[in-house]
Amino acid sequence: MSNVTRADYCVIAVAETFRGDGEIMANPIGTIPMIGGRLARSTFEPDLVMTDGEAMLVANALPVGVEGVEKVVEAWNPYRSMFDVVFSGRRHVMMGASQMDRFGNQNFACIGPMDKPKAQLLGFRGAPGNTIQNKTSFWIPMHSVKVFVERVDVVTGVGYDRAKALGAAGRFHRLGHVVTNLGVLDFETPDNSLRIRSLHPGVSADDLVAATGFDLVVPDDIPDTRAPTDAEMEIINTLDPRGLRGKEVPE
């Protein structure tokens, strides 16, 4: 398929992070994550539970960036209930990161020291809770040495080295894939440090390594991220009729 864009590969890679999740709450945050999560539910993970971004759980696949589409509400889930979901582990969230190290320690609170930051960003939001209580994946729309760093300034989301150091208290910690505009990374290595899982077509391993500020595990044979099927492309276009995914990840 010649008309498949880099953003479409990113959508597919996001959808794949939810494969096998079954009946849990999928919370993809970001434009491409939302399209990918909804694609997964529309195809191979029909039991996923998803929100409208506020207090409703919706049964239908809402298109992104379109107002006034009728929601098929299946349940009520105000913010307070969301913490019940997180604390009980029945969630898979996909978050962003301003910084990430090789073990998946994530920072989006601030750049510089916590007590007097150079740049105040989001704060801790729900990152400590998500990473210690339920499955967490990541979406990085701009893969660069600024994001993938040797050492994060502040640990908001907990990485594998720190989770292991907690012993039994870290038993619910689980990081999934890190999907970027260049490829897909995962933690499926002996020491759970990041490795390249797949490359989006047109990206070489050297490109991705050069855009990463620490030594990645680079396998000998790295597959391409799988292409969307025709049926998936049709659904992607329905979920994103305005082409917003191409604004998040341009060609």
Binding site: D115, K118, Q120, R125, G126
Partner: peptide, 24 residues
């Protein structure tokens, strides 16, 4: 996404904080 006046106060160091997780 970011409250600009709060951001300014933080970066100027004019306030202290107790950082928390939303559920915490």
């Amino acid at each position: 996404p970011l409250e600009p006046h709060f951001r300014k106060a933080r970066e100027a160091g004019s306030i202290s904080t107790l950082e928390m997780d939303e559920g915490m």
